[in-house]
């Protein structure tokens, strides 16, 4: 047995969890290897230390506070509880898409007017028509017809940029607050749009990023990493820039506000990540984090 193999068994050796044969084999290696013996000593120390920690229980007053908050949130949500279920939202989305698709086909065959839905639908392609003011607005075109149908709605697309900006904490906040696409997402998209569009927008953003000379796969991996902890976030912005003199990728993702009843994506998180560190260890690559809230009340 060499050191590399021995290290794989040392934790269980220290904790007494190895079979007799593997224990003997590891023991034999330990007799001849001072480095592994030193590591074993450290594992035994940490075993002793961890044994001192026991499960802790939630203090009574904290339990009462938390339960009271949960009950009040539950009471306010129960009226619409059924409609908040992701399965119900997904089913409703599919039904809407089927109905809208049917209406489009009927409209094409009868020469009637095509409906103008506000939500996005599957089974459509997009064509860029403008790219001003930050967000490029795309016109949707039915794939069913040979002749393009009239516009049936519009999407606000995510925006990618490559700049030489060298941000610090203050200028990041200013940039985030002033970003048009963040405000447009807040007014345009809902929670169910985020569920339906998040994969597509991640790819669109990566494609734009590649066209600007950026590293698209790393950007997609970063978005996926962020979405691990909160899946219902819709990517809206990416920028290749500097932060404190280091190369970074800034990722903006929109989601619903925390703890509220609004389903509009009025909260945008901004993650400033070092791409080189991300490859080695995602947890250590985050250089800045902040969020902006958009007030949609009219």
């Amino acid at each position: 047995m060499d050191c590399r193999r021995a290290k794989k068994t040392l934790v269980e050796y220290a904790d007494g969890g190895l079979s007799r044969a593997r224990r003997d084999e590891t023991g034999l290696h330990l007799e001849s290897c001072a480095d592994c013996r030193a590591l074993l000593g450290m594992l035994e120390v940490s075993r002793k230390a961890l044994d001192k920690l026991e499960r802790v229980s939630m203090p009574g007053d904290a339990s009462r506070r938390t339960l009271s908050t949960l009950k009040s949130q539950s009471a306010s949500a129960s009226a619409g509880g059924f409609f908040r279920s992701p399965r119900v939202i997904a089913t409703a989305g599919i039904l809407t898409a089927v109905l809208v698709g049917f209406a489009i086909v009927v409209g094409m065959f009868t020469g009637g007017k095509v409906p103008n839905p506000k939500v996005s639908q599957k089974g459509s392609t997009t064509t860029p028509v403008s790219s001003s003011g930050g967000a490029a607005e795309l016109t949707k075109t039915s794939v069913a017809g040979q002749t393009p149908a009239p516009p049936v709605g519009s999407l606000v697309m995510p925006v990618a940029r490559a700049t030489s900006n060298n941000y610090d904490n203050g200028s990041m906040k200013t940039m985030a607050e002033g970003l048009d696409v963040r405000k447009q997402f807040a007014q345009r998209y809902t929670l169910s749009d985020a569920v339906n569009l998040r994969v597509l927008f991640s790819q669109k953003l990566a494609d734009q990023f590649v066209a600007l000379g950026g590293d698209g796969p790393t950007l997609e991996a970063m978005i996926s990493y962020i979405q691990q902890s909160e899946p219902v976030l819709l990517p809206c912005y990416a920028e290749r820039a500097l932060f404190g003199g280091q190369n970074v990728i800034i990722v903006g993702l929109s989601g619903p506000p925390r703890g509220g009843n609004s389903k509009m994506l009025s909260r945008t998180e901004f993650w400033v990540m070092n791409p080189e560190k991300f490859v080695a260890n995602p947890d250590s690559c985050i250089m800045w984090w902040g969020q902006s809230l958009q007030n949609n009340s009219k």
Binding site: K7, K8, L10, V11, L39, G41, M42, L43, V45, S46, R47, A49, L50
Partner: peptide, 10 residues
């Protein structure tokens, strides 16, 4: 876990 325990001991 191995690295964590060694680091903890350090």
């Amino acid at each position: 876990i191995f690295r964590g325990r060694v680091k903890l001991a350090e």
